[in-house]
Structure formats: C-alpha cells, structure tokens
C-alpha cells in the first residue's frame, strides 16, 4: 500500500514546527511515532500534502519527576512509559496501560503524545488519562496552556489541541498513599485495540473507606469518558464485592456506545460493566497492597 505523495519536513525545534504548521495549515499533519498516521495514510484515509516529522525536535521525549508530578514528553515511546522506573513507582497504572498497547514492536515506536493527540476511540491510554487525571500541555505561538483530561477528548479522533498548537507534554500526578489502579481491556483479537477498556483508580483511607474513585472507559463509544455514576457509587463506601458490583452497573451510562463489527450496543454496554468491575476489583486489591 502506497500513501499519496506528500512533502516531508523535519523541523529542528517546536518553534520551527509551529511556524510550519501555521504556514501550511490544514494541508499539514504532524508525525510523531507514526503508528496511527502512517497506517491511515497507507489506507488513504489520510492524505496530507505535508508531513511535519517531530522526530528531530530535541527535548520532546523523556520522563522526569517534577515535585510530585511526572512529566512525560509527548514523543516518549510506549515502551519508555512501560519500562519507566519513575512511573512504575509513582503511578504504575500508566506503565501497565502502555504495556498492553499494540505489541512490542509497536510500543518501541508509537508515542504517548501521538496516541493521545490522535485519540482513536479504541486506544487504551485515554481511559487511564481520565482515571489518573492527566494534564495535557499544548504549545502554540503565544505560549503554553494546560488542558485537563476531562476536557481533552472532544469526539471521534478529536481533541482540545488547537490547529495551530502542538501537544508537547503530559503531566501525571503521582498517586496518593493508599491508592491502587488497574487498566483492563477486552482486546480485539487481531488489532489488540480495546473493544472495551476500563481504567480504575481508588484511594482508601486507613479504615478501608474509599476517599476517591476515578474510572475511565474507552473503546465502547466515539471517545473515552469518565464513568461518573460508577465513581459516585464507590466514593465514601467500603469497597466490598457487593458495593463494587452495584457501582459497576453504571459503567455504560454516559457512554455513546456504538454498535460495530465487534458487537451490538447491548454487548458492548455489558463489556463496560464487566471490565469496570474487574478493573475496580484489581485497583482495590492493589490499594490494599
């Protein structure tokens, strides 16, 4: 499969990339790891006239601890996220999620920023972005601004990043003591994308009462969403099996569940409830250590 012809640009700085983006406008696409964009170009679902490759921009990859917030450069690969000692210690659900994206060779190249800016409805990290409270830092000609995960995913492959902006980093709060999290999915057997995926994070106080619950659902609808009904059913409760069961029943509420080749609305709604329950169970187990 051959993509349509395009002109290839390799800016050496974010500023240069922004200037190209400003000049070329809608005719240009930013290329990060390329593991979403290149397949789309091969299928000619995307036919940009200009491709702006961010590989040569220094400083966009890497993971560092900034006083309790983990800062992940947008060009950091899924493998770097999966294998990061800092993330493993401070917010392991992010590493766990990265470790089930695609397959090892895909994770060696695909980037967290590229994936979150592409916002495939069946991508894994969006659910965890919501559960773990990611913040998205976008840079434009006028400087940087930060967008919260709840405001990031706008619709099918659509995010809050402006046409004249670049997602440059993702900020992840280190989780509080007594927290646990898990991301679980029902993978498509060939592509390994999430037919449905659920990310859950819970914080328990010394008596085992849930002081904070955060649940994100991906795959089922056109975009990842927060399962507010589930969170309400967990917060303030002792998380025994019955409480988790009841709370997880609300996992498909607020999701615009789409029927497709993988299943009906009923089937995918059911998967939302099952995977939310399993993710919460795993999160509680980890929170209890």
């Amino acid at each position: 499969m051959y993509p349509a012809a395009f002109e290839y640009h390799t800016p050496g700085s974010v500023r240069e990339a922004l200037s190209l983006l400003g000049k070329l406008g809608d005719d240009a696409k930013l290329l990060a790891g390329g593991h979403s964009l290149i397949p789309m170009m091969k299928l000619r679902l995307a036919q940009p006239k200009h491709v702006i490759d961010l590989r040569r921009v220094p400083g966009l990859a890497g993971i560092k601890d900034d006083k309790g917030t983990i800062v992940i450069g947008a060009m950091t690969t899924h493998w770097q996220v999966e294998s990061s000692p800092v993330l493993r210690e401070k917010c392991p659900i992010v590493s766990d999620t990265a470790g089930v994206i695609g397959d090892p060779a895909v994770r060696n190249v695909g980037t967290i920023g590229g994936s979150l800016a592409h916002a495939d409805p069946a991508a894994d990290m969006p659910a965890t972005a919501i559960a773990a409270g990611f913040e998205f830092v976008c840079e434009g000609a006028k400087g940087r601004r930060t967008v919260k995960a709840d405001d990031w995913f706008k619709g099918l492959m659509s995010t809050a990043v402006g046409d004249d902006e670049i997602l440059v980093e993702i900020r992840v709060p280190a989780w509080a003591a007594g927290s646990g999290g898990a991301y679980l999915k029902f993978p498509h057997p060939a592509s390994r994308f999430a037919v449905v995926g659920a990310a859950a994070m819970v914080t328990l106080d010394g008596t085992g009462v849930c002081t904070k619950a955060s649940v994100g659902i991906t795959g089922a609808g056109t975009k990842a969403v927060r399962a507010k009904g589930v969170e309400a059913g967990l917060t303030g409760q002792t998380l025994d099996q019955a409480t988790i069961e009841v709370a997880a029943q609300k996992a498909a509420e607020g999701v615009d569940v789409q029927a497709d080749l993988q299943g009906s609305v009923e089937y995918k709604s059911h998967l939302c409830r099952v995977f939310a329950r399993r993710a919460i169970e795993a999160a509680v187990k980890r929170a209890k250590g």
């Binding site: 390329g34 060779a105 060696n108 190249v109």
Partner: peptide, 26 residues
C-alpha cells in the same frame, strides 16, 4: 501491510520495529 503481522520486523537502533510503518526518509 497494516502493522499487525510482524513479517516486516527489523532492528532499528537496537530495537525491533515494523518496517511497513516507517517512511524511509524518517
């Protein structure tokens, strides 16, 4: 040819990658 089967896997700078999902110019 859709980055799923791995028949095109090569090593690039010490890691395995799928060469059907790279442009040569990269």
């Amino acid at each position: 040819d859709t980055s799923q089967c791995g028949a095109c896997t090569i090593l690039m700078n010490g890691v395995a990658v799928k060469s059907c999902t790279f442009f040569a110019v990269q």
